[in-house]
Amino acid sequence: MATAKQKNLVSFLQKIKPNGSSVTIFIPYFWLTLFFLLPFILIFFISLTQPVDFQQPPHTPIITSTENGLQLNLYFGNYQALTEDQIYILSIVNSVKIATISTLCCLLIGFPMAYGIARSPDRWRNTLLMMVILPFWTSFLIRVYAWIGILGKENGLLNGFLMWLGVIDQPLDILYSDLAVYIGIVYSYLPFMILPLYATLEKLDNTLLEAAADLGSKPTNTFFAITVPLTMPGIIAGCLLVFIPAVGEFVIPELLGDSSSPLIGQQVRSVFSYDWPMASTLAMMILLVLVVPIFIFQYLQNKQTVTK
């Protein structure tokens, strides 16, 4: 007779016996854990080490083996340095500020566009939607590059145009300033705002708007009382899709921004070239800022897949 222990063992073996579905799950799970999850855990631990020159890897080991077994070496100096040296905190604050304002600008420009596309005649809608998607498929780098020629001080097209119109007599200093970064971010991320907004606006039940109008509601009132609340999922998704990558943006401020006040994404890249632990610490700080927005986004994604 099989004892309870043996029964347990059998059921355990049955559980771990590879079958079709567990192998199916295992392959992507393994890949994403090895190349996505573990790297994040690794930078967390590297942020708790000290830099060491002329050594590969250039930081103190995370784990050392001593006579008493393995020992975990934790060093909190990098996080302490953040409070002492204001430059990193300032660049985080500046990055969040720029990302927030850019997100709002995207919403203000993107909402009327998405609304217009959703309400366009059928034969136009596909084409208009395609016109939003097309820049999204063309190279991001090249679209940012295009603005250098437009915003430049000497020979810049915008300055030339404004001076020709007589609006200004001195060329404006737009390129290599925060304003140029705003323009670059809004321009690059606008499709990410329009597409989720369009997806919710398209499904908006028109009878609700008609009912409100029949009951004497003014168009602006109807808009804020019905259209905006019903499209909230799209608004939130669009804002997060712009805000989250904008906080860590590297290419746009590098090409269009003021090099004397680097944003946090640029800091990570430049600090990395001489101090891995500090670069990891800065990356952890960006994650700390973004953890709430990322969780909201994950939650929305999850809800969407469940309701589907």
């Binding site: 996505f36 994040f40 899709l241 989250i244 860590g248 994404g265 990570v268």
Partner: peptide, 19 residues
């Protein structure tokens, strides 16, 4: 698993690249 699949969509590239 759901988190692992959807996190790369929103993670700032600087962090992903460094990690």
């Amino acid at each position: 698993f759901l988190g692992l699949v959807s996190a790369p969509l929103v993670m700032p590239e600087v962090i992903t690249g460094l990690a």
